[in-house]
């Protein structure tokens, strides 16, 4: 263990600077919204993730945000365990009917002000599961959505850019 710890001290960090998005990739986010988040919450966001029936691909990439390369906490972004502590609800999956009530209750349990982010093509409009008897087909069918991050799944850097933009403004 000692050797690994020592190496960790001596090696250069793996964490990468977040390069700005290409102009045409900038997520759809009104300057107004970004400003509002910053005004109300300052420089930190507590994020509660709910899987509303995803294939688990989106979760894998959200989990990757905590690895040494992306290290989302350096931007003041925290994944929290309770909706009561959260400013942002980050939702994945097409919103299955079996999960809709639990998701709505999670949203209701969050104190205002709060924002909702739909991550992945499924949360946008149901993705490849749209039209099934078992899904609502997109998060905005259940609760108002402030920001959408497309992709199947979105890459960690796209997730990170969008969340940082929400915090800092475009």
């Amino acid at each position: 263990m000692r050797r690994l710890l020592l190496e960790g001290l001596l090696r250069r960090p793996l964490t990468e600077p977040l390069s700005p998005a290409e102009a045409d990739e900038t997520p759809a986010l009104g300057a107004e919204l970004a400003g509002a988040v910053r005004r109300k919450l300052g420089r930190s966001l507590a994020i509660r993730v709910v899987d509303a029936g995803s294939c688990n691909g989106c979760e894998l990439e959200i989990n990757a945000l905590s690895n040494a390369f992306y290290d989302l906490e350096r931007f003041g972004l925290h994944l929290v365990a309770s909706p009561r502590h959260a400013d942002v609800l980050l939702v994945t999956g097409p919103v299955t009917k079996n999960m809709a009530e639990a998701l709505k209750r999670t949203y209701d349990a969050m104190p205002a002000p709060k924002w909702v982010v739909a991550a992945g093509d499924c949360a946008l409009d149901g993705g490849c599961f749209a039209g099934s008897y078992a899904v609502l087909g997109g998060l905005q069918r259940l609760i108002p959505v402030d920001l959408q991050i497309p992709g199947c799944p979105p890459r960690p850097v796209d997730l990170l850019r969008s969340l940082v933009l929400l915090l800092e403004g475009g």
Binding site: T96, F129, P153
Partner: peptide, 26 residues
């Protein structure tokens, strides 16, 4: 997490079937 994959596959083209199958467990 039930998405109704069995119903979506029924009558789907073989190509769409591949896309859905690949999204059963990411």
């Amino acid at each position: 997490a039930h998405k109704g994959i069995g119903a979506l596959m029924r009558g789907a083209s073989l190509t769409r079937g591949a896309a859905i199958a690949g999204r059963t467990s990411g």
